[in-house]
Design a protein around this nucleic acid. Structure first.
Lengths: 228, 228
DNA sequence: TGTACATCAGTGAACGCGCGTTCACTGATGTAC
DNA sequence: TGTACATCAGTGAACGCGCGTTCACTGATGTAC
């Protein structure tokens, strides 16, 4: 029976998680408040410090979780395509999954891909989780290039960019040419950008069915990247 | 000499503008505070209400200004290309100008293209200014299509998207086909997305010279759009 | 098995700070006769 | 040109609310002998 205390602690910790997510959805990252969580928990405000060292630590926790969450979503979407050689289908599936995650987890999306929270500096612990979803995309680039596929339009990279991306590839052990790497990052930027403009309301009175538009342009991006 | 009052009022109004922008840069849109502006102005906090009806109105003012600002920047960049037939050069110039504006006016960029401020609902007055910068891009699409240029990869649009974009074109008097329209919006999303990931820190340890990378991928996007 | 001590969850008060907005007021500027 | 009245910028106090964080404390749970 070791741990009535331990179990209670784990349970409270879980509640804090739950409430933090709920808060995020209601008031956004900037409005995340330890006092409010303590209140919802039925505790006095100072008691929360038995569980969370500070507000920034709670934010870090949420950011790491969100990065991980979207990473899992991307990985699952990719794994769901049976025909592994169909890189375009895998890309489209990942893009669609990330968009759907963003729609159903808008506050988490804002937390990691939106405007950074003022006064908060992300500690190094957040770097590794951040790469999880991008790793899925990079894997597609690696496979595409290994099979001799090339982007439709090879970008005219300035020397400095070629140097930087070559160094990055070497440093991380990723075997992708600078040209495709540059376009891959841009495609990732496009995916996030298209999700952002939808989520942040810039498609109002422009496109009423964003999912259809998004899927179509992401499929086109896959062709442009040379994934077909 | 009519208007020592009038002149004082205009001057104070100008100061409020200036201080609001400074505040935006320091604490971000979420932290924008009427009290702080009054303080900086050397006024008592309630006096600010002689000039600004409410905090939300100040936000609206700043948003409208920012939209207008980036619109002017885009227009000027476009106008700066002497060879009007070189649509790709015009697109690249606009993209570069918008990115540079975003870098030098980060808080304004966040205000209009970043995470929306919680609790603030944009009034209809903000819609018209928002379209100013996009109008520049759309003009490029119109000219491209008028000259018979086509995107490298025609997107396979679902029927619903074709219908929506046809209706939008008719409603606004823009003579752009749904296919190009869809890709144009996606290119605009890419531009904003690539700027966002740079500004929000997602290129740290990835690309050290974002301007070079950005220009290269935007030039490639112009080719893909069929602007060459 | 029982007792003594250590651990730790939660309390309650406090510090010092912030915010938007209202309201009755003073005193200077502007205007109409 | 001078006076009476209207306008309006700015004051000062207040309402009612929020926040993060610290600190001495009580009382229950866990542990070592």
């Amino acid at each position: 029976m070791a741990g009535i205390r331990e179990r209670a602690r784990a349970e409270t910790m879980g509640e804090i998680h739950r409430l933090a997510h709920a808060q995020l959805a209601e008031v956004g990252a900037a409005g995340l408040s330890l006092r409010a969580i303590a209140r919802d928990l039925g505790m006095v405000s100072s008691a929360i410090y038995r569980y969370v060292p500070s507000r920034d630590d709670l934010l870090t926790m949420l950011i790491v979780e969100a990065f991980d969450d979207v990473g899992v979503v991307a990985e699952r979407a990719d794994a769901g395509i049976a025909d592994r050689a169909d890189l375009a289908a895998r890309w489209s599936a990942v893009a669609r999954a990330v968009r759907e995650w963003a729609l159903t987890h808008q506050p988490q999306f804002e937390l990691v891909y939106g405007t950074p929270v003022r006064g908060y500096v992300a500690p190094p612990d957040t770097i590794a989780p951040a790469t999880r979803s991008t790793a899925v995309l990079i894997q597609l680039l690696v496979e595409a290039e290994a099979q001799g596929r090339r982007p439709l339009v090879g970008p005219a990279l300035p020397a400095v960019t070629t140097v930087e991306l070559t160094a990055l590839a070497e440093r991380t052990g990723i075997t992708v040419s600078p040209a495709l790497f540059a376009l891959g990052i841009a495609a990732w930027g496009q995916m996030l950008g298209c999700i952002s403009i939808e989520l942040f309301g810039h498609l109002h009175n422009v496109i009423d069915t964003p999912s259809a538009w998004f899927d179509a342009v992401m499929a086109t991006a896959a062709v442009t990247l040379g994934l077909t």
